[in-house]
Deep mutational scan, measured.
Amino acid sequence: NKFNKELGWATWEIFNLPNLNGVQVKAFIDSLRDDPSQSANLLAEAKKLNDAQA
Rank of each mutant, 00 (worst) to 15 (best):
L7H: 07
P18Q: 06
D35I: 03
E45L: 06
S39A: 12
N16E: 03
N4L: 11
N4D: 15
W12H: 10
N41S: 13
L32V: 06
I14Q: 04
S31R: 15
K48R: 14
W12M: 07
G8R: 13
A52C: 08
F3L: 12
N19R: 01
D34R: 15
K48A: 09
K48V: 11
E45T: 09
K26R: 09
P36D: 02
N50P: 00
K48D: 06
L49Y: 03
L42N: 01
L17D: 00
W12Y: 11
F3V: 09
A52Y: 11
L32Y: 02
V25L: 10
D51E: 13
N21A: 07
R33H: 12
V25A: 06
A44K: 11
D35V: 04
V23C: 07
S37W: 04
N50C: 02
S31V: 07
A46P: 01
N41T: 13
S39I: 15
E13P: 03
A46C: 03
S39V: 15
A44H: 11
S39D: 02
N50E: 02
K2R: 11
R33E: 07
N1Y: 03
F28R: 00
E13R: 06
V25G: 00
A46D: 00
N19E: 03
F28Q: 00
I14R: 01
Q38I: 05
A10Y: 14
L7S: 09
T11I: 15
T11W: 13
A52I: 11
K2L: 13
P18W: 05
P36A: 04
K48Y: 04
N21G: 06
V23F: 14
Q38A: 04
D30T: 10
V23S: 14
P18I: 07
A46W: 02
R33D: 03
V23G: 12
L20R: 00
N19V: 01
D51K: 09
A27D: 09
W12Q: 14
G22H: 14
A44N: 09
Q24G: 03
G8Y: 15
L20N: 00
Q24E: 03
G8A: 15
L42S: 02
E45D: 13
Q24D: 04
E45G: 01
A40S: 10
P36H: 02
A27R: 10
Q38G: 06
F28P: 00
N21K: 06
L32T: 01
P18E: 09
K5F: 10
D30A: 12
G22T: 12
D30I: 14
A46S: 01
N50Q: 01
F3W: 12
D51C: 06
Q24C: 02
D35L: 05
D34W: 06
K2P: 11
P18K: 09
A46E: 00
D35E: 04
A44R: 09
D35F: 07
K47N: 05
K47F: 07
V23I: 14
F3N: 05
Q53N: 05
S37L: 06
E6S: 06
R33L: 14
I14Y: 03
D35N: 13
S31K: 15
N4F: 10
K48C: 05
A40D: 09
A54C: 06
W9M: 11
A27W: 15
A52S: 11
N1F: 04
F28L: 06
I14E: 03
S31C: 04
N19P: 00
K5T: 15
W9V: 09
K26P: 01
L49R: 02
A44C: 11
V25D: 00
K47S: 04
D51P: 00
N41W: 07
L17S: 01
W9T: 08
L49T: 03
K2G: 14
L49A: 05
L49E: 02
G8V: 13
V23P: 12
K2D: 14
N41Y: 13
P18L: 05
L17W: 02
A27G: 09
G22S: 12
V23A: 13
L20W: 01
E6M: 05
S31P: 00
Q38W: 03
Q53I: 10
G8W: 15
K5L: 12
S39M: 15
A52M: 15
G22C: 10
L17M: 10
N50D: 03
G8I: 15
L49C: 05
Q24L: 02
N16W: 05
K2V: 13
R33F: 13
L49S: 01
L32N: 00
F3T: 09
V23M: 11
D30H: 08
A10V: 15
R33N: 13
A46Y: 06
Q38V: 04
D34E: 14
K26H: 07
N21W: 08
P18F: 05
E6N: 11
A10I: 15
S31E: 09
F15Q: 15
N1L: 11
N50T: 01
W12I: 10
S31T: 05
I29N: 01
A46I: 03
L42G: 01
N50L: 01
T11N: 08
V25W: 03
Q53K: 04
Q38R: 12
L32C: 04
G8C: 13
E6I: 09
A46R: 00
A40I: 11
Q24R: 00
L49W: 04
L42W: 03
G22Q: 14
N1R: 02
A54K: 07
L43I: 10
K47W: 05
V23N: 14
F15K: 11
D35Q: 08
A54M: 09
N21R: 05
G8H: 15
N16Q: 12
A44D: 12
N50G: 01
F3Q: 09
E45V: 03
E6P: 06
F3S: 06
N19L: 03
G8Q: 15
D34I: 13
L32G: 00
A52L: 12
D51A: 13
S37H: 03
A44S: 09
S39F: 14
F3I: 11
I29L: 14
K26D: 06
